[in-house]
């Protein structure tokens, strides 16, 4: 009898207590599709926490994802949310931002989506310093399609399409983003939840192209193909091998197979965004004739 009453007590407590990030999620879509020990959920938790801490008006926040495991994030966030085509989250988000400049637009997608098929958009949008927060979850592999080689796969790591080990050089993403003109660049792992949350919150308050790379475990594919152990062991690996160096030379932050993961905030510079530059230039060249798009967009209504 006592066991039964204990269970009842636990259940009734659970029904009253809501998870602190539940208001930020579409709870009617739970459970999510991610595997046990996947890192994406942790990144979502940190992002949702940061949205709350930053105190932004959630009605003005839009989230855009592409395709892939991380591409499903938009589908779980209780925001205006867009699950778009593979690689095109950044240009789609560019349209949203320019169509209604008052929106706070976050792109949340994976490495294959944003810098594989979407690589061209990534570099040009960083070059423009477009006002977007870009969160890239890097699990070193194409997860949703079954573990194929990615533009981030470390040299020698095994993937389903490089079964003898990867021989292509991967991107060094913070270096790429910074050299293209991103105004905020950081990298963390899924173990650094406090720092990651802080970084998201900080980036939400900045303008321009803000890029945050999050190294995330994929125990179903990447770890299994490379015999790296369980999710717990992957987190222990981050614990032992992540090194925080905010002032790192970005030439030195490339990721080797099972090597050091240099984390930190590498770039945080206030620079005029695409929209700032456009306004300033037209005001200078056209004077009073310039009529900028209103913050709520260029829509025509009765």
């Amino acid at each position: 009898m006592s066991t039964v009453s204990e269970q009842t007590a636990v259940e009734s407590t659970e029904s009253k207590v809501e998870h602190p990030i539940a208001p930020y999620l579409r709870m009617d879509r739970m459970p999510h599709i991610w595997c046990p020990t996947c890192g994406i959920g942790t990144v979502v938790k940190c992002y949702a926490t940061a949205l709350g801490e930053a105190g932004v008006d959630l009605d003005k926040v839009a989230i855009v994802s592409g395709i892939g495991c991380t591409g499903r994030v938009a589908g779980y966030m209780n925001l205006d949310a867009f699950h778009t085509t593979h690689g095109r989250a950044i240009p789609f988000a560019t349209g949203l931002k320019l169509g209604r400049p008052e929106l706070l637009v976050t792109v949340f997608s994976g490495d294959g989506d944003l810098v594989g098929i979407g690589g061209n958009h990534f570099i040009h949008t960083a070059r423009r310093n477009m006002d977007l927060l870009v969160i890239l979850v890097n699990n070193f592999i194409y997860g949703m399609t079954g573990g194929q080689n990615a533009p981030t796969t470390p040299l020698t790591a095994k993937t389903s399409t490089m079964p003898y080990g990867n021989f292509e050089n991967p991107f060094n993403l913070p270096h790429l983003a910074a050299s293209c003109g991103a105004s905020y660049v950081a990298r963390w792992t899924c173990l650094h939840t406090r720092r990651l949350t802080k970084s998201f919150k900080e980036a939400l308050g900045r303008k321009g192209f803000r890029f945050i790379e999050v190294i995330a475990p994929c125990s179903t594919l990447y770890a299994r193909l490379n015999r790296l152990g369980t999710g717990f062991e992957l987190m222990r690996f981050y614990h032992d091998n992540a090194e925080i160096r905010h002032d790192a030379d970005l030439n030195d932050v490339a990721i080797d197979f099972q090597g050091k993961i240099v984390c930190g905030k590498f770039v945080d510079e206030e620079r005029p965004t695409f929209i700032d530059l456009m306004h300033a230039h037209y005001e200078r060249t056209l004077g009073d004739k310039y009529r900028p798009m209103p913050p709520e967009g260029g829509w025509i209504h009765e």
């Binding site: 855009v64 205006d80 867009f82 778009t84 085509t85 690689g87 095109r88 950044i90 240009p91 789609f92 988000a93 560019t94 349209g95 949203l96 320019l98 169509g99 209604r100 929106l103 061209n120 958009h121 040009h124 798009m293 967009g297 260029g298 829509w299 025509i300 209504h301």
Partner: peptide, 20 residues
């Protein structure tokens, strides 16, 4: 934009703001 893939994607995104 940087190419026509991006142009069309931006147009679809912007349309969700009600802007034609």
């Amino acid at each position: 934009m940087e190419d026509e893939l991006a142009s069309m994607a931006a147009v679809v995104g912007a349309s969700w703001t009600g802007t034609k």
